[in-house]
Design a protein around this nucleic acid. Sequence first.
DNA 1: GATGAATGAGAGTTCATTCAT
DNA 2: GATGAATGAACTCTCATTCAT
Lengths: 210, 210, 210, 210
Amino acid sequence: MSEKRKTIPSLVKDPKLIEKRREQIIEAAVHLFINKGFHKTTTREIARASGFSIGTLYEYIESKEDVLYLVCDAIHAEMETRLREAINFNGTGLKILKLAIRSFFRVMDQMSDRVLLIYQESKSLPKETLRYVLGREEEIAQIFVEILQKGIADGSLRLDEKHVKLMADNIMVLGEMWVFRRWALHKHYTLEEYTEKQITLLLREISVSD
Amino acid sequence: MSEKRKTIPSLVKDPKLIEKRREQIIEAAVHLFINKGFHKTTTREIARASGFSIGTLYEYIESKEDVLYLVCDAIHAEMETRLREAINFNGTGLKILKLAIRSFFRVMDQMSDRVLLIYQESKSLPKETLRYVLGREEEIAQIFVEILQKGIADGSLRLDEKHVKLMADNIMVLGEMWVFRRWALHKHYTLEEYTEKQITLLLREISVSD
Amino acid sequence: MSEKRKTIPSLVKDPKLIEKRREQIIEAAVHLFINKGFHKTTTREIARASGFSIGTLYEYIESKEDVLYLVCDAIHAEMETRLREAINFNGTGLKILKLAIRSFFRVMDQMSDRVLLIYQESKSLPKETLRYVLGREEEIAQIFVEILQKGIADGSLRLDEKHVKLMADNIMVLGEMWVFRRWALHKHYTLEEYTEKQITLLLREISVSD
Amino acid sequence: MSEKRKTIPSLVKDPKLIEKRREQIIEAAVHLFINKGFHKTTTREIARASGFSIGTLYEYIESKEDVLYLVCDAIHAEMETRLREAINFNGTGLKILKLAIRSFFRVMDQMSDRVLLIYQESKSLPKETLRYVLGREEEIAQIFVEILQKGIADGSLRLDEKHVKLMADNIMVLGEMWVFRRWALHKHYTLEEYTEKQITLLLREISVSD
DNA sequence: GATGAATGAGAGTTCATTCAT
DNA sequence: GATGAATGAACTCTCATTCAT
């Protein structure tokens, strides 16, 4: 179902070192891309901010686009990790769902710079790679799909199976909205207010009892 | 409230001619930006596609970013025009709201390339300009705010005044979602199905009767 | 029979100007390539020696290899022109042949730097282009083929038709030898001595009378 | 007369090992240079194809140019060895000469890739080194000089002493021509036909009887 | 003696912008 | 008002060479 993860060739042999250096690259590039955008960040800046020379940078990647891929993938990985860590899968689907939404919105809030980065820059990835990165997004949506299905199964949620995916997408989008429209929303709401309000809206329709 | 529209200086005196040429520029650039992205489109390409020389292009703009601004502004203008044309402000707030949502979703669908363009490229605008462009987005949200307020006033909608802006934003976001997630959504829904489903979700909470 | 001449695209429209600038490029590049070799000459050096900026250079070529092609082609053109100008096609084949050999050897001598350049650098051309350039060499050999055939026809040369091409190649190669082995040959011979000696050798076999 | 062979310093002490490793380097580099050319072959590729690391490569050479020198020298050595092995120095000068020419042309044919390599890449050698490599060429020409002189001495060849060197050069050049113009010559001749034809041409003038 | 990660000068190429015509 | 040739800073990427381990 999901595209296979891209493996970026490296001229360096030691896998431990590759991982370490790529973490440095990601750490450096995330901040640069957030502040200047992908196109306005130069490979030299990435190298310098990573703590090594331009030559060394290219020992660990093949092209600037590879850095963007590494960054996007790392962000998604962190999003998913944080989300999964925050969710406790005990209790009714409804209960889990509420927890998951709160967690997701919180993760969006904490990672808003990086979420924005993905949305604004991932289009610069090569087509093939872009598909994979978009696929990671779907994996996160899938978490909500599963929770919703659990809720349907245990009777705590009433929702046509047909609309499960849409509901999952709605949750995702309303979470991302907190990021995209923060300049407007932060004026009126705290994260908590926003979260509770959206939960009310989203669940009114589908929760059997709350 | 809203930022003042930016005036791009031109070396040319005749305002009629300026408008005509800028329309040519916008027409050409929209397609180029959609297909290649802002950064990968060259000013030479814009000039050629506009039907004149690079020198002439720079008689009507001061920088490449100006073209992006013209394009974003034109897209917003078209969005707003289409939306306003489609809405009939007669009837209860609830009725108008449904019509407006349907219209907005349809406009999003029809203009999806251009909507995407704004979301992906507007970040390349100079800060000041970006603020103005984001402001245009608010103007559209404002349409929904007004409709919601009318509905509250005439009793067809039950919604805390405090949440009006959020509801308007939700509508916008769910409309934009049809664009951003089209690769996922189009598999499961037609625009009409999607629209009705989301209307149900959005209004369940707030409509007094439907 | 011969490959079609390559047309290098230019960003500049005026054909007169293209020709003029390319002449400048060729003039500059020939000397640089002779002195430093193709690989050790930078595009910046070519631009500077041509009298304009690197940006301007790239208005008239698409790649550094294009410069090499221009240079090789110009050298061949000059070789052929000089040779054809020097040959008088009146008289018996034998007489014309002797004149042609002397002319060819003289041209080789005068252009020895450039002949060397072609032999040492043309391999860096893209395959397709290389084929064309090698073809030009054949066109020159063809001059000798025609003279030989004229001599056979008028009875002044006795040579199996089958060996005409080989004889033409031999003439070419012995002319080029004056270039490739000049470090050895110049110690022992003047150009004139060398020429007469080789003519004797080459014609002993085939001339009916001299 | 001939330049002294260049001695490449090595960080390694053991002469046996140096020789072994350099043979590996030559073997690897010859093929790489033939296929990609000297400039497009990287030292990393040479090391890998040699079977060891880049660091080890530089234990046995001081620069990439050293590899080119090793390669050119090895090719010349092989040429000379093969030629000397094939020649039987018994008989009249004329007889030996014919044998030598046939052998030389055959060696040229068998080693054509490598002969071409020397002609196209040796110019990239440092001036000093180049002189030595070109000198090796002379040593081979010297073989023919000696044979010619033997033929003059024993009366089987009639040739002005003054022209001996030229005749030797002619032989060399016509042999190399089989390599340089193979794309043209192979269409018309087998190696044997070519050889016999050229022998006829070359000897007509000088052989007392054949 | 062998390794391979690190280096950085320097390469070819692009393209937004200018300005003389 | 229109043109398009000229500019050169800035870009991504390469690769011969070094040296600590």
